[in-house]
Design a protein around this nucleic acid. Sequence first.
RNA 1: GCGCCCGUAGCUCAACCGGAUAGAGCACCGGCCUUCUAAGCCGGGGGUUGCAGAUUCAAGUUCUGCCGGGCGCGCCA
Length: 589
Amino acid sequence: MIRPEPMQNLKQHLGALLGSCLSKAAGIANSNANVITASKPEFGDYQANGVMAIAKQLQTNPRELAQKVVELIDSVNDKLIERVEIAGPGFINIHLRNDALMAKASMVLQQPNTLIPQSEQAVCIVVDYSSPNLAKEMHVGHLRGTIIGDCLARVLEKQGHEVIRQNHVGDWGTQFGMLIAYLKEVMKAPDPGSDDLPTRLADLEVFYRAARKRFDSDSEFAETSRLSVVKLQGGEPEYLQIWQRFIDESLRHCQLVYDRLNVTLSNKDLKAESFYNDGLSGIVTALEEKNLLTLSAGALCVFLPEFTGKDGDPLPVIIRKSDGAYLYATTDLAAVRYRCFDLNADRSLYVVDARQSLHFQQVFAVARVAGLASDNISLEHVTYGTMMGKDGKPFQTRSGDTIKLIELLNEACRRAFELVSDKNPDLDEAARQAIADTVGIAAVKYADLSKNRTSDYIFDWSAMLSFEGNTAPYLLYAYARIKSILSKQETALEQYSITSIDAREERDLLLKNLQLPEVIEMVATDCYPNLLCNYLYELAGKFMRFYEACPILKAELESRNSRLSLAALTAETLQQGLDLLGIETLEKM
RNA sequence: GCGCCCGUAGCUCAACCGGAUAGAGCACCGGCCUUCUAAGCCGGGGGUUGCAGAUUCAAGUUCUGCCGGGCGCGCCA
């Protein structure tokens, strides 16, 4: 496959052009013209907000400076720009040429793989996401991290970066000692080769809860559990064998959920906590060499001056517990080292619940001072909010009302099936089921992806399973409408080409299509998938308005072909955008 | 007690590192299917952006102090 050329998106092009004009006019190198999409249609297509700040700096009249900038822009005769004008206190409003927009769009139509340009510099990016605890079955709280991470991985990959997914599953902590101890207890004479373990684990959640109850109520059992961890981490065969069967069973559950969710994770992306086990003593050595370790109450700790807790006391990062077992900080340090020096990552993203932000701050800081991370690697904790219950209180995973992720997906598809059957009773059942499966999953994913990841969110069936308004079905519906039209055209177009713009709705839709690369760039930089959702929703909305206002198949020949092309371009944009969200499209719905 | 995050329409959320009159959806009210899929489109009501200051041409956005909510803070992950 030919790698599409790096290409400036509209905003980058205008930003560079106006930036250089502003720099020249102001006599200040690298001035930022601060070009953004226009906040209102009256202001044109894009607007430059940077003139006023520079004028302030120069103690000069902003409108006069803007005038100089405008003259410089005019002298360049840029192919994209129809005209620029000064507005208000010193804004520069930018209007783009229709012919330039049409030409750009027609080019993209002929080479759809240029719709999303390659990043100028491809780098290696590790994306750590999903990372469920294998002691339990995946529940609704795992949804966010899994699909946000998957979206980011897809976006970065699409830009040409080398993306290495890392599913850092929890398979090695204290809870496994607990499970093993409980299993041994439940099955008096453990014989891991021939028992009915899979049957007993058919409901991992139930098994976990039972073990947990024992652990919390019986200190002797808790002690046995902790000793089991040490034995496991020490490599005792019997423990390893039981453990392995837990893991295999649990991973099977996870993969079912991933496949159902259309999440790209597979076995090859697994890098479990246990993978780092052999390297943990090396972490201790490395920290020792840097004189960072302190023995505190029997535990090996790192104290960094920038982290203090209660009463200003130094806050420890516990590297090794007093009983000799390691904790997740140590594992995470080993993972940082692995990603930096073995995978040679330039960026390492951790898509993990915001509650762990202090933990990651500490791990990153220790990794830097201990040389477990190079200075060049960008370590980024991509946080997301805590899931709350209907009452606004945190959704307790240990309480009985945990909802399994698979149950949510089943319910979504069930409701979607009812709706499809209602809307489209003529389709046979298999077709309706297939549509419902796509729509249901899409709705659940989009409900989460479309919200700013940093805010806490309330688990709410009705919001998550809604099919109207700003939802995935709206986008899928727009796509299906386009496909329906395209399938009705009598003669296939030799090649799509957008050659005329008559209505406001046509132009709005055309320009919006061309702005996908800008959005992708923002998502890749800041890791906010909701920006892509917002964009696609606006794109679909502009298509709906175009659809209502502009007849396509009944239009005059030239307009007809042009509108068909515009519709085809929109389908392409929607399809590629939804694909980056991990949402499949439908030809019919 | 200390630290981090959050507070925007009745509800769920936007607002592109400080920009022009704060926008959508849901819900509610009213229009639009003999015309390319009504899971749609058009219109309407609804706001002192928690409160009070500060910074400046410009603050939902930055700073300070309160109020309210969430999370984290030594051997769970």
